[in-house]
């Protein structure tokens, strides 16, 4: 019965989410379910249910939310957020939850790798000499990647080094 509600893993989870950038609107939910009814991910994988995630936050189910796999299944399509009659910015709340999870070292590997590449190279895919030769063959301009500023921004925004 892993799906049943485990009360009060954290009394302050709702406040924690509210205080995270993007999470401010979480208290406005009236559980109407418009988010889930229009969610494209839910239509193919019922394990991702935005209405349930919001309710779990209200019930203080911190560990169950932050350690879940479903937290990373949102496709960021913004459908729920556009339709919510209460102005709950659900996609932004998912981003807020992921940021809290990330600070607790709960990041799926693909996100970890992506972040490292961007911090180090300034972009996900490095454009090397070979790519630039292919580009010039079809009349596209050379792309030079300078990444010093991006590395520095990573440091000042996160307090970590890339």
């Amino acid at each position: 019965m892993t799906d049943t509600i485990q009360h009060h893993e954290s009394d302050s989870f709702l406040e924690e989410v509210r205080n995270e950038p993007g999470g401010e609107s979480v208290f406005r939910c009236v559980e109407c379910g418009i988010c889930t009814s229009g969610c494209p991910v839910f239509s193919v994988q019922s394990g991702y249910n935005p209405r349930k995630i919001i309710r779990m936050i209200h019930l203080g189910m911190r560990k169950s939310v932050l350690e879940s796999a479903f937290l990373w299944w949102c496709a960021s399509c913004l459908t729920c957020q556009e339709r919510c009659p209460q102005g709950v910015r659900i996609s932004d709340i998912v981003v807020a939850l992921r940021n809290i999870a990330a600070r607790n070292d709960l990041i799926p590997d693909p996100y970890r790798i992506q972040e490292k590449r961007i911090a180090e190279q300034g972009r996900i895919y490095e454009i090397d000499e070979f790519d630039n030769r292919k580009r010039s063959k079809v009349g596209l301009p050379e792309i030079l990647c300078s990444n010093e500023e991006v590395r520095r921004l990573f440091e000042v925004t996160s307090g970590e080094s890339p």
């Binding site: 981003v95 940021n99 030079l144 921004l153 925004t157 996160s158």
Partner: peptide, 26 residues
């Protein structure tokens, strides 16, 4: 074409919002 442009920030929003904001604004 501006060579100084880097990542828009979208891929790192989920793990480091402040970094994503700074990349976009840069």
């Amino acid at each position: 074409h501006i060579n100084d442009f880097a990542c828009c920030g979208f891929p790192v929003r989920s793990t480091k919002q402040a970094f994503a904001d700074a990349l976009a604004a840069r």
